[in-house]
Design a protein around this nucleic acid. Structure first.
Lengths: 194, 194, 194, 194
DNA sequence: AATGAATGAGTCTTCATTCAT
DNA sequence: GATGAATGAAGACTCATTCAT
């Protein structure tokens, strides 16, 4: 009964997932549409039923991935907890997301440092902006953090977490709760109001 | 007498500079050899006298740029100062380098997040490794920093400084000494042994 | 009771009309089946219920359009009039048809100058051949015209009328009876037995 | 010594000639760049050293061909002859050009009836406009012709000559001087001031 | 009869690289 | 050393056609 819907989503999702994997592995340039199609088990032309161009595909994948990151960050959000606890939760969630979704992390980093990000600054996750960035803003307003522009805060946090995740992943280490806390502590100590 | 040498260097340098600019502006994919040649005022074939392939060109540009970064970081190094003072000097120098060489920063970030970095991990600046990373290691050994792996420390610091430089550059703000100190303070507070 | 038939015809006609318009506007190459379907308000696959292939569609459209031209030319045919009067009537009718059906004219000209005409010489309007060309033949046999092969006469007449219609249409001029007579006079003076 | 020039021209000319032939045989759509390259004995990419795109190639071929037509028409031009004699000479030259260069004629007719002509009305032979059309204008001004707009006169003449040439060519007849004169007479009788 | 998602061969075009001069 | 015309493999994308529903 909802087969149609499933099929629709499954092809589209397969294409997005295939793109994520190939871009992570070989970069934007090294991920030809033909390969993306092959890995998604669809014909090359099929991609163009779902996406206008390779550019569109990449940009939509970025938004989807950032949405997923935002969802992961917001998981288990508990208003009753203290700001610091909630902040730690955010960081741990983000770190875990990177560890569990290496391709997502690598893709996001590539995207952010590519001309795409400059050319389509308006194409971004609404969820991330409205929930995650807003939460950071609240931390600044509530004087938990140093008086830093939130547009500086975000990338600073991301930079450290990505660095940590990359390190752990490259070392093939099993990450423990202590690992995570240690990294988050770096972030926190850096930006908290002393 | 060394005109020939100068010419040799000037063409080579022109090609590297042209590549840096074009990669910064359009990404690896958007910087064809023909354009690189045109911007360097040389013929397309000439590039192949200095570099085996586009890949080689990019990798050598990476090493040169990282060398330049290392040199900038080490500028005014004064053994007689305290470790903390020297660390702050390192950070300020790096930050200034990014501000003054946006294309270098953008190129480095693109490179680090591209498959190149993964495929040629051994191709890197010797100067950077032997002086800069070694200095961080000393900070860990000397218990100035938290007990963090130096391979984590480097990217963490870079992440924050790049975030800050990007922010300043995108805002077209004139950066002041306070700006710099504020950012370096974030880094320092994050990693210093509490 | 003949609703079905009407529907059948209406879809078929819609497809033919859509093709005529798009070919006129963008040429054979610029009229993809998907666009033809969209403009005809049918699904892409539906076209293949009525026509075997795009080639068939074009050829059948040619025959239909030439049939329509023949019908227009023969309108008000009056055996009792003199040959010259009937000839003028033919010309005026043809000229008017072009003016009122620009897409038909453009399509016919494109078709005649395309490989289609060469590859399917037998695919043509029976009505046109049996009535219009036969009438010209009668003019030759009856010694009203110079002694020209009828296969030369047809295109010669067409050439002048199309030139005139194109000129009028591109000038966005309101054509008058005198205009028409003037053009027909050129044709007549050219071919009539002096 | 002028080998370079020859080579340059020879490749460019080979590409244009190859295009002319293939477009004549298979139409615009049926002449892929790969085939054009193959028939010209060059690599596919080479075409793009001489022409920006397929569109440019076609348009430049049109201008070149129309230039050649104009040159052929103007051959043996003799100011001392009467206007009528010179007009007949023009017509005979044009007719002969069509007979001897069937592909040029077919290409020109295809082009004129394609969207190209509509989209690039300014791209045309200067020689043709300044010499041939000007000569027709002189005929109107000198009252040799009926009072017709020159923009109507040109296509009218072309229409008849092309019709005649096509007929002769399709009949594989050897054309004689009488043939030509007969056709030109049709043109002349049609447009001359009675 | 009608749909439109899916196909994949084929198209134009780009671009790293070569090589004769 | 230097040139830049030439190459041709590979890429993004189109589109006539099919077929399950």
């Amino acid at each position: 009964m909802n087969v149609q819907l499933n099929n629709f989503n499954s092809k589209r999702e397969a294409i997005l997932n295939s793109t994520l994997l190939l871009v992570k592995e070989y970069g934007f340039h090294g991920a030809p549409m033909s390969q993306i199609a092959k890995h998604a088990n669809v014909a090359a032309g099929t991609i163009y039923h779902y996406f206008d161009s390779k550019e569109t595909l990449i940009v939509e994948l970025y938004i989807r991935t950032k949405d997923q990151l935002a969802e992961a960050i917001l998981e288990g959000y508990d208003e009753s907890k203290s700001y610091k606890d909630r902040f730690f939760r955010f960081m741990i969630n983000q770190y875990n997301f990177y560890i569990k979704n290496e391709s997502a992390m690598v893709f996001l980093e590539q995207y952010i440092n590519s001309p795409f990000a400059k050319n389509f600054p308006e194409k971004d996750s609404v969820l991330f902006k409205e929930k995650v960035i807003a939460f950071f803003q609240a931390g600044i307003d509530g004087e938990y953090f140093k008086k830093i522009d939130p547009r500086l805060l975000g990338p600073t946090i991301r930079g450290t977490l990505v660095a940590a995740a990359n390190f752990r992943l490259s070392e093939h280490m099993i990450y423990s709760e202590e690992d995570i806390t240690e990294v988050v502590q770096i972030v926190w100590d850096g930006i908290k109001r002393q």
